[in-house]
Amino acid sequence: MPADPNMKILVVDDMVTMRRIVKNILKQLGFANVEEAENGQEALQKLRADTYGFIVSDWNMPVMTGIDMLRAIRADEKLKTTPVLMVTAEAQQSNLVEAVKAGVSNYIVKPFTAETLQEKIAKIFK
């Protein structure tokens, strides 16, 4: 099933520049319903208060990291099936393994291109 262009997407990153980049690419790809959160904790609050179809998250964030947020999402009955795409500069193999074990839907290493994001979204929603 292809990704619904109207689905609500949450972009989680502590860097305003990165949130804006991801939001911009998503808009170019036809996803206009995008919200933002600065860290895992803020994201969880938003996720529990509303319904999101997809989450794009950074790894390194203050307050709550991306990997901790991912574990919390997978442990939450309401949120556990929401696809989570990790966008991170943590390109170490051990990080990737940790993310896969935690239930990540896919993984992008920074810096990335719009094509890579499009390809990963297509793979997640195929």
Partner: peptide, 20 residues
Amino acid sequence: DGKCLTEIMTALSFQDLVAQ
């Protein structure tokens, strides 16, 4: 041009890497 503009946006992710 639109593609180039998107590439400019993504290239700006250097700032995030520098900040980290």
